[in-house]
Simulated scan of single mutants.
Amino acid sequence: MNIFVYFESNPEFFLFSVFLLSLLVGSFLNVVIYRIPIMLKREWKADCIGFLSDELDQKEFNPEQYAHHINEETFNLSVPRSRCPSCGHKITALENIPVLSWLFLKAKCSQCQSSISIRYPIIELSTALLSVLVAYYFGVQWYTLALLVLTWTLIALSMIDFDTQLLPDNITLPILWLGILLSVLGISSISLMTSVIGAIAGYLILWFVSQIFKLVTKKDGMGGGDLKLLALLGAWLGWQALPLILFLSAFVGAIVGISLIIFLGRDKNIPIPFGPYLASAGFISLLWGEQIKQFYFNLAGI
């Protein structure tokens, strides 16, 4: 029996399968969120060392000074194995079961008993729940699988930006192009023209905003990653979704930013990552964008 037919005739099993798969993906996202920024920084270090060695003569550049950077152990998404940051204990397969292992271990390392952050099961469970929401809303189709990939990407980008204020190109750009490719193949719900215009408009809108802000304040108010993230959302959701995404992200971002300054005394000069707000607004627009716009039009009597 075709798997799509089976899922359509057993929607509960379909949602349960998405839940289990997304729990595993959430566990992998924890790895991505932690390791991608470290991998990027190591790559930048290597590029800087290579540049210095090319530009400076031997008297000015001492390779031994940078040997510990050059000879660092292999570090990518699969190597080395995950380990406890306190004692170095390598995490076993039984200790790496999403959510359940954290509960079974009582949020402590099995060797040194140091605390394991609740953030890990929260990301795993949030990934699963948001994925089930997407699967329930869009049903059994190839486009749903693509939207699950988009959802997982937005979660990873949000957390990386929250931690490091980075939105890595090696995540953002491939997913942006995937959104356009889906339109080319006819899998997406929007046309190729709508997708391309959405990507272009998404980038240019925030580019103009950032340039105006820099002209007025003489400061950089937005990173290039934010521009590419909105371009990504435009490629997937179309240019028509951009006004709502911008409104929701700016509204929530302003509330959170003002709250941090007033209630927690955060320095207003410390930048606040905008990526999580863009990603959240994009996800809301994906599921309920039409309903929100219709509610507004009814409220305005249009």
Score class of each variant (00 low, 15 high):
263 F>S: 13
147 L>M: 13
166 L>C: 00
1 M>N: 12
119 R>F: 12
157 L>D: 03
133 L>E: 08
171 I>S: 04
148 L>E: 04
122 I>V: 15
216 V>N: 05
121 P>D: 07
198 G>K: 00
154 L>Q: 06
273 P>D: 10
166 L>D: 01
44 W>A: 12
221 G>M: 00
206 L>R: 00
271 P>C: 04
35 R>K: 10
99 V>G: 02
175 I>E: 00
189 S>A: 14
107 A>H: 07
124 E>W: 11
268 K>G: 07
111 Q>F: 13
245 I>P: 02
255 I>H: 01
292 I>V: 11
166 L>W: 06
105 L>H: 04
139 G>M: 02
29 L>M: 10
34 Y>R: 10
220 D>T: 13
215 L>W: 14
193 M>V: 14
22 S>W: 05
134 V>K: 00
248 L>E: 02
4 F>R: 10
238 G>R: 02
52 L>T: 05
41 K>M: 11
156 A>M: 08
30 N>Q: 10
93 A>F: 15
239 W>Y: 15
41 K>L: 12
104 F>W: 14
137 Y>W: 11
229 L>E: 06
102 W>H: 11
8 E>M: 14
277 Y>K: 05
271 P>D: 06
175 I>G: 01
213 F>T: 05
74 T>Y: 09
275 G>D: 06
66 Y>Q: 06
111 Q>K: 15
29 L>C: 07
129 L>S: 12
174 P>N: 10
72 E>N: 09
20 L>D: 06
245 I>A: 02
53 S>K: 14
201 A>Y: 03
206 L>I: 07
98 P>N: 08
275 G>W: 01
152 W>C: 04
249 S>T: 08
296 Y>L: 12
299 L>H: 08
152 W>H: 08
43 E>Q: 14
97 I>R: 05
11 P>V: 10
56 L>C: 09
227 L>T: 02
230 L>E: 05
27 S>G: 12
37 P>T: 08
176 L>P: 03
221 G>D: 04
114 S>K: 11
213 F>Q: 06
217 T>S: 15
55 E>D: 09
291 Q>G: 00
76 N>R: 05
33 I>T: 03
173 L>H: 06
185 L>C: 13
297 F>G: 01
108 K>H: 13
114 S>N: 14
10 N>E: 08
139 G>C: 04
13 F>C: 09
167 L>S: 06
266 R>D: 08
295 F>S: 14
69 H>R: 11
246 L>I: 15
168 P>M: 06
195 S>L: 00
124 E>K: 12
49 I>H: 02
144 T>Q: 07
87 C>T: 08
302 I>H: 11
122 I>T: 13
248 L>M: 13
226 D>E: 10
144 T>W: 05
232 L>D: 01
265 G>R: 09
105 L>C: 04
12 E>Q: 12
90 K>T: 12
24 L>F: 15
9 S>Q: 15
46 A>R: 12
187 I>C: 06
41 K>G: 04
192 L>H: 02
34 Y>M: 11
199 A>F: 02
3 I>Q: 08
216 V>I: 15
116 I>K: 01
179 G>I: 02
115 S>Q: 13
278 L>C: 09
38 I>G: 04
253 G>R: 03
167 L>Y: 03
122 I>A: 15
22 S>I: 04
60 E>L: 13
82 S>R: 10
